[in-house]
Amino acid sequence: MPTKSSTTSDTEATAAKSNASENNTATENKSEKDSTMKAGNATVVKSEMKNAPLHKFFVDALKDIYYAEEAIVGALEKMQEAATTEELKDAFEDHQLQTKKHISRLEKVFRSIDETPEKKKCDAIEGIIKEGEEVIKSTKEGTMTRDAALIIAAQKVEHYEIATYGGLVQLAITMGHDKAADLLDKTLQEEEDTDYNLTEIAETYINFEAEQED
């Protein structure tokens, strides 16, 4: 009788181990299946997002401002050379360096939403820059009037950028692109600071001295 009891116990233990092993295997298979389904769903969602009209517009707008920032670098160099006062020359030089950082930051924005950085011609900034070039041609070299006019031309560029980045930040937030939103918002704040600084330079003395010129 003791032998029979021992055999029964061994059989029951073996059966329990077998059931546990089957349960573990089933659980593992279910987890793998769930993971595969989640990965598949994520791929579908990502694909749908990229095909969504708002996402396409967002990417298109990024390409537009990416082109604009590149064009602004060259325009600022011309403005710096044309400016009269050292203060304004320094302001344009600082903004040029800052703009190069904005270009690098935009490239990070593209990558954060799994897009390749690309430029699309921006007719708006081309027009604003052309207007700035006309300001240089139509004002006398070495005058405060030229500096006053250059500040206005530069602020038109700033206001275009502020409007663009402000809208892009809100779109990024809406679509859940949190990293992109943070990066774009940093640039937005810097553009607003630059606009404020240009106003300060103009109102401190340049506008007043320009008013006294013949």
Rank of each mutant, 00 (worst) to 15 (best):
residue 151 I to V: 06
residue 71 A to P: 02
residue 151 I to S: 05
residue 148 A to F: 02
residue 150 L to Y: 13
residue 148 A to V: 05
residue 119 K to G: 03
residue 100 K to P: 11
residue 118 E to M: 09
residue 104 S to R: 09
residue 90 D to H: 08
residue 75 A to E: 00
residue 61 A to C: 09
residue 15 A to V: 11
residue 128 I to P: 02
residue 75 A to W: 00
residue 139 T to S: 10
residue 12 E to L: 13
residue 74 G to A: 13
residue 73 V to K: 06
residue 123 D to V: 05
residue 26 A to C: 02
residue 136 I to G: 02
residue 134 E to V: 05
residue 125 I to Q: 04
residue 69 E to A: 06
residue 150 L to V: 11
residue 129 I to K: 01
residue 153 A to E: 05
residue 33 K to L: 09
residue 124 A to I: 05
residue 130 K to A: 12
residue 45 V to M: 14
residue 20 A to D: 04
residue 54 L to A: 15
residue 93 E to W: 01
residue 28 E to H: 05
residue 129 I to T: 07
residue 110 F to S: 15
residue 96 Q to D: 12
residue 58 F to L: 09
residue 14 T to R: 14
residue 35 S to D: 14
residue 13 A to W: 10
residue 130 K to L: 08
residue 122 C to G: 05
residue 119 K to F: 01
residue 26 A to S: 08
residue 91 A to E: 14
residue 138 S to F: 14
residue 43 T to E: 15
residue 62 L to E: 10
residue 45 V to A: 13
residue 73 V to G: 01
residue 73 V to C: 06
residue 132 G to L: 07
residue 43 T to N: 15
residue 14 T to Y: 13
residue 65 I to L: 13
residue 99 T to L: 12
residue 81 E to Y: 05
residue 87 E to V: 15
residue 70 E to W: 04
residue 139 T to R: 11
residue 89 K to A: 15
residue 52 A to T: 07
residue 57 F to C: 00
residue 53 P to R: 05
residue 95 H to C: 04
residue 60 D to P: 00
residue 12 E to K: 08
residue 131 E to L: 02
residue 112 S to W: 03
residue 154 A to Q: 04
residue 92 F to N: 11
residue 55 H to Y: 15
residue 123 D to I: 04
residue 23 N to W: 11
residue 54 L to N: 13
residue 95 H to M: 08
residue 105 R to I: 10
residue 126 E to C: 08
residue 78 K to T: 04
residue 144 M to K: 06
residue 81 E to H: 07
residue 27 T to I: 04
residue 63 K to V: 05
residue 71 A to N: 01
residue 115 E to D: 01
residue 135 V to W: 03
residue 130 K to V: 04
residue 114 D to I: 00
residue 86 E to I: 03
residue 127 G to M: 06
residue 102 H to S: 13
residue 22 E to Q: 02
